[in-house]
Design a protein around this nucleic acid. Structure first.
Length: 221
DNA sequence: AATGGAGGCAACCGCACAGCG
DNA sequence: ACGCTGTGCGGTTGCCTCCAT
């Protein structure tokens, strides 16, 4: 094509130590952001996204690498129960860990472990719910929040939500909460749940009971 | 020693969204 | 209102290593 500027061909694949050094020095000198400029000025022949990712996941200061501690593993499992595949949120609660690292770790290590536990626990839940909630839609902790089928707002408010996921997080619901309309009867489910989840994420892993208050106030007011 | 499969992980891809002109 | 650019995010790919045969 005449007069059309040819797009630069970027390198792909693994980063070499030299490339890392160049990027590191550049970002430390000029600061983060504007990755298109970084890509051009460094002469690395890497795309802006590639530079950003490399910095964010590998070169940034305070990146913690290596084995996950038992505490971290436990936290990831608990947060994943709450948040689903929201890796950036989960990683945000793990100092020094990146979303990519958490995601990889989940997919390779914890996913299997969690699904193994899930099978055992689901048997228990299925048994119980069969006895008590026949023909009712279920929202268990074992469904990802993202993929769980959320009941739409309809005139029928008689649906009872399986609150077992809440019980697992030491959150006490009001004794008569079964009489309340389901907390999940919201069109904008995400917007409604996010602040609640955030509070749970903040407090629950550290064993406080603040979440109890928050849940009550937020949902049942 | 050769090889093939599985697991782990870094990096890429595609999409969504926000900010700006 | 619209298009462009930059950034963030989750899903996926593909390379490398290890281990069993």
């Amino acid at each position: 094509m005449e007069g059309k500027e040819e797009k630069p061909r970027f390198k792909k694949g693994f980063w070499k130590p030299d490339d890392d050094l160049i990027l590191k020095i550049y970002v430390e000198t000029h600061g983060e952001g504007n990755w298109t400029v970084v890509s051009k000025k460094t002469g690395l022949m890497r795309g802006a996204k590639s530079c950003r990712l490399r910095w964010k996941n590998y070169l940034r200061p305070n990146i913690k690498r290596g084995m996950m501690s038992e505490d971290e593993k436990d936290l990831i499992i608990r947060l994943h129960k709450l948040l689903g595949n929201r890796w950036s949120l989960i990683a945000g609660r793990l100092p020094g860990r990146t979303d990519n690292e958490v995601k990889n770790y989940w997919n390779t290590h914890l996913n299997k472990r969690a699904s193994r536990d899930q099978i055992t626990h689901l048997d228990h839940i299925n048994h119980r719910s069969h006895q008590t909630h026949q023909n009712e839609p279920q929202f268990s902790q074992h469904q990802d929040l993202q993929t769980a089928s959320i009941p739409q707002v309809e005139t029928d408010h008689s649906t009872v939500v399986d609150d077992s996921w809440v019980q697992d997080f030491n959150v006490t619901l009001p004794h008569d909460h079964q009489n309340y309309p389901s907390p999940f009867f919201f069109q904008n489910y995400e917007a409604f749940m996010t602040p609640i989840l955030d509070n749970l994420v903040l407090f629950d892993p550290f064993g406080t009971t603040s979440d109890e208050l928050i849940m009550r106030e937020t949902i049942f007011q």
